[in-house]
């Protein structure tokens, strides 16, 4: 692994405020953070800590009240809806907790969807690599309803990788899976970073999942309160207990 990785994405002085005056809620309260390329970063924190909001804003799905977000060299605040769409299409991949796939498209069509939408030619070799890596070769022509939860999630990971995005955001990707399938997905995500050179930012509240990451960032009340490099599950659990008390 190289230590000279550049920043894939970052936030500077990010504020996200809902409501006004008395009912004001600071979902992000001045977050500054960078995510290195070719690294696997986990964002952790209790419910309402702002971890999902941070991820949505980083991914250009939601906008900040103030502050700036960059993906690569691009400041998202300067983009209109059309440019944001293009950025998401080519630079960002997504893995959600559930409902990741378009029910009317086959597994393969779902995987190539971001490329198809952009009219980008499909890099067949890369798709083959991804498909084989997630072990879906035999299920490519099935509709999502014909796939198990774990298989659906693997299709989602493959789709996130398909366009070789600068960064992939995963929102509780194992939240809906049993532990064996969860392990499978996490192993694969680790593999994607280590061997395929991808960059992943994952929101989770599961210490075991976080232990697959290179680095864990802890959020509470909209602020970054701690971080940990090369975590193990025990370490993470330990930190969380401390944060909770």
């Amino acid at each position: 692994m190289t230590s000279l990785s550049t920043a894939a994405a970052g936030a500077i002085d990010a504020f996200k405020i809902y409501g006004k005056d008395d009912s004001e809620v600071r979902a992000l309260d001045g977050v500054t953070v960078t995510f290195a390329s070719e690294k696997f970063t986990a964002i952790m924190g209790p419910s309402g800590s702002g971890k999902s909001t941070l991820m949505h804003c980083l991914a250009g799905l939601d906008s900040l009240t103030s502050g700036s977000i960059t993906i690569g060299d691009t400041n998202l605040a300067t983009l209109n809806d059309k440019e944001l769409t293009l950025t998401r299409r080519s630079n960002v991949g997504f893995i959600f907790q559930a409902y990741n796939l378009i029910p009317t498209l086959t597994a393969l069509e779902n995987i190539t969807l971001p490329l198809d939408l952009g009219g980008t030619p499909v890099d067949q070799q890369w798709i083959d690599t991804v498909v084989d890596a997630v072990g879906l070769r035999s299920r490519l022509n099935h509709r999502p309803s014909e796939l198990s939860g774990g298989q659906q999630q693997r299709v989602a990971v493959a789709r996130a990788l398909a366009s070789k995005p600068r960064i992939i955001f995963a929102d509780e990707p194992t939240g809906n899976l049993d532990s064996r399938m969860g392990t499978e997905i996490l192993t694969f995500m680790r593999h994607a970073v280590t061997d395929l050179g991808q960059t992943i930012v994952m929101v989770t509240h599961d210490p075991v999942a976080a232990s697959y990451a290179d680095r864990v960032i802890f959020l509470a009340d909209g602020k970054i309160v701690d971080e940990l490099d090369n975590p193990t599950a025990d370490h993470v659990l330990d930190r969380m207990k401390r944060l909770g008390s």
Partner: peptide, 15 residues
Amino acid sequence: RELALLRAVGASARQ
């Protein structure tokens, strides 16, 4: 959710 997902993975409003 399906439409939002399409938007998230890169479909434009126009699409």
